[in-house]
Computed example of a mutant assay.
Amino acid sequence: MKGPLFYAKILLFGEYGIIKDSKGLAIPYNFFQGALKTSNNLTDVAKKSNANLKKFYTYLSTIDKEKVHFRLEELKKDIDNGMYFDSSIPQGYGVGSSGALVAAVYDKYADNKITVLENLTRDKLLKLKEIFSLMESFFHGNSSGLDPLNSYLSLPILINSKDNLEPTGIPSQKEGKGAVFLLDSEQIGETEPMVNLFMNKMKNEGFRKMISNDFAKYTDACIDDFLHGNAKSLLRNVKQLSKVVLANFKPMIPKAFHSLWQQGIDTNAYYLKLCGSGGGGYILGFTPDYVKAQDILKNYKLELVYRF
């Protein structure tokens, strides 16, 4: 038995901002994926996943049946028969490992599920997001539901605000010099402590002002530029966003990367930003010249996401 594949996601823009209702843009990233599988002979990794699914099953049985109804007996039987989530999506890296698992379980075990094939009205998207938020809270204590939504639909999603989402198209990749890439910090990041840190910072009026003025302004401009294929303007705005993040989100950036971050801003060779909640995992990079950036960052593992 092997279920359909569910992909990783990258929140290109909007980390933390979407908690406070600014814009965001999430895209599927099919370099990493996961699927539900069953085996009689589980490896250690699969055993761990199977044990995690048991806990997840217990949690799902507490969710309000009015919101979403799961075929729990079938799920429990499959788990007892050795079902696990076979995934290449790195955990704690900000690319939606738990989101893909949530999407896979909803797809296989939810009754009356909303499917990708139907007309995805805003109401349906919001209902899906609410269900996924409830499900994914098991992993993070608090979830927007966006990662599973992206993984489930496998479509780029534009977040205009908490209650306004829409599937969107992104410009097709060009054979240009510019690129979006992932830089591996080789450290695991944990979502919950980072989000708690952000919430504490939000108690500070100066920080709140910075979020609603500078952070939201540059995030919105970056999304607009990206969706319209305005590469020059995009890089200008990403540079400003990179500065704002370095100045105000230092605890979310692993210490070893503070000077590398600044170097990008100073040289204009690349600009870094958080990928997900930060604290480790991947860091997102934007560059006008990927070959040059690769050379400067040759001591780090990079993954290409998008060319422009």
Rank of each mutant, 00 (worst) to 15 (best):
F6V: 04
Y7W: 08
G14Y: 06
P28Y: 10
F31I: 13
D44Q: 14
V45L: 14
A46L: 11
K47A: 07
K48I: 13
A51S: 13
N52G: 09
L72P: 09
D78E: 05
N81C: 13
Y84I: 08
D86P: 12
S88N: 09
A100R: 09
V102Y: 06
A104H: 10
D107Y: 12
D111Q: 14
K113V: 03
L120Y: 00
K124P: 06
L128I: 08
L134C: 07
H140Q: 11
L146V: 03
D147E: 08
P148W: 03
N150C: 03
S151V: 04
P156Y: 00
I159K: 00
N164H: 04
E166R: 01
T168A: 04
T168C: 00
S172M: 03
Q173C: 06
Q173L: 05
N200W: 00
M202Y: 05
S212H: 10
F215E: 04
K217H: 02
D224H: 11
D224F: 10
N230F: 05
K232P: 03
L235A: 00
K239M: 14
V244L: 06
A247G: 12
N248S: 12
A256K: 15
L260Y: 08
W261A: 13
I265Q: 02
T267A: 14
Y270M: 15
S277N: 09
G280A: 07
T287I: 07
N299Y: 11
